[in-house]
Design a protein around this nucleic acid. Structure first.
Lengths: 261, 261
DNA sequence: TTTCAATCATGAATGATATTCATTATTTCT
DNA sequence: AGAAATAATGAATATCATTCATGATTGAAA
């Protein structure tokens, strides 16, 4: 029992790491790349089989390390889920930030964010599950890493909405946090419906109707509506938008005359 | 009572209590009450500790049966979660159906449904988790029991919305399923926010703003807007003019803040 | 009442996994 | 090179979900 023939299997980490032009790496680099390998393997397995059905042994195998090694890098399976989620959030936030600046109107920006979110969660739906697994209780969630990552991500949305309200393209009677929950909650549920019915082509429709629901009509749309049916609701929404614009105008004028003095 | 055998199920609501002074019961009654005891115990434990941290031994202990006995009634832990969810859905649907008929306008009905849903999921948030656990893959979900129960529940909402559209109280440009996903998805996300910040008192606000967002303005509000207008074509002209003014204004403002830097 | 086949119940055994830990290998430093 | 530090390993352990051989209970026929 104490005696060990051992060396039955000798994975060759040195050869692996040192291969190719990269050649020698520092210990820290090797360690970091091993950590990456484990996270990548975990991501793949979670996506393929889901969290519950993925074993540590699966992950270790795919990452070419021993089971015990996984625990050198991550305290437990939950911590691995956390790391996978963190990587997912990073990409999500980065793409959202990079993309949103390409659009001018609030509607276009929201449509971009909605499509980006919906595409991402459809493609990575099993990663979303991990949120439920890692966020054990609502109390400790606030202040957690995950919370911070989420705040960073939704900050992009918040910025668009704040400017939209300021421009009068969004109704200022709805509070921002409720707006946000409706937007992202609606998208998550739409994802489920789309997957259940296996109708990816409904993505466009969801994006367009969601954006339509949360933004005020523009004059162009209002005109069309007026010519068809003179819908009083559209008119009153347009009136709200115009009212907003007038207020802004007044502020600016007041500002100007104040400066002139 | 000679043909007991032919009756597959014999619910006996009169002698529900079971234990204590109630001596004689039929075998079937005892079996049914044991099943109830197991489901109740499971519900309690899942709510207290969550699915993952609840062991079959916990449940068996609380229901005063042996571990093996649980498996006489339920195929596995997932099936138990399913039974708990089914009971939850039954109550949810029943209350929704009973409550909604007490309200007249679409807004009031939706407000009732929103509040009922939000209250229920806040109180039973851990039960909601079970959906993720039991619905293993999107494909097989359709056609499952759970799917049917969900359809029954949302049918109440669907009915209200259909009538609302017919009455002109809801915009018919948004498709019903997207409407539904925004409504329930928004509520679920709002639940999370409310729990994270521990602000139950925000429930009223969520309900009112959600309903406001998904319904058209009332006749009162519409009338105010409409009273401005002599004709719809005038309105659209004014709107176009205002829109141009707003755009000009935005340019000026953008210009300014650029100069300030 | 007695008896027995059908049910129901039990909890120890099994198997699958997450996690730990004693041991071995590798790297860095002197 | 040799020692200390660091990293890696995989067998051992602990915790459950689930199974199963065995025993108890029940209803009703005799």
């Amino acid at each position: 029992m104490t005696h060990k023939k051992s060396n039955k299997k000798q994975p060759e980490p040195a050869t692996r790491a040192g291969k190719g032009a990269n050649g020698p790496q520092t210990r820290r680099e090797r360690v970091a790349s091993k950590e990456d390998a484990i996270v990548s393997a975990a991501t793949e397995m979670f996506m393929a089989r889901g969290f519950a059905k993925t074993t540590i042994s699966d992950i270790a195998g795919k990452a070419s390390v021993a089971e015990g090694t996984v625990y050198l890098y991550f305290a437990n399976k939950d911590a691995l889920a956390h790391a996978v989620l963190a990587a997912f959030y990073r990409g999500l936030t980065q793409k959202a930030q990079a993309g949103v600046v390409k659009f001018e109107t609030t509607s276009d920006r929201l449509a971009f964010l909605a499509r980006h979110h919906l595409d991402s969660i459809i493609k990575n739906r099993t990663i979303l599950e991990l949120i439920t697994i890692t966020d054990r209780d609502a109390q400790s969630y606030k202040g957690s890493d995950l919370y911070k990552m989420n705040r960073e991500y939704v900050a992009v949305f918040d910025g668009v909405v704040r400017e939209g309200v300021w421009r009068g393209e969004i109704d200022d009677k709805i509070s921002l946090w409720i707006f946000r929950d409706i937007f992202f909650g609606g998208l998550e549920y739409a994802m489920r419906t789309i997957l259940i019915n296996n109708r990816r082509k409904d993505i466009d429709q969801v994006v367009s109707e969601l954006v339509q629901m949360v933004t005020l009509p523009t004059a162009e749309q209002g005109k069309a509506a007026a010519s068809i049916s003179a819908s009083s609701s559209d008119i009153s929404k347009i009136a709200a938008r115009m009212e907003k614009a007038a207020t802004r105008l007044e502020e600016i004028v007041a500002d100007r005359s104040a400066n002139k003095k």
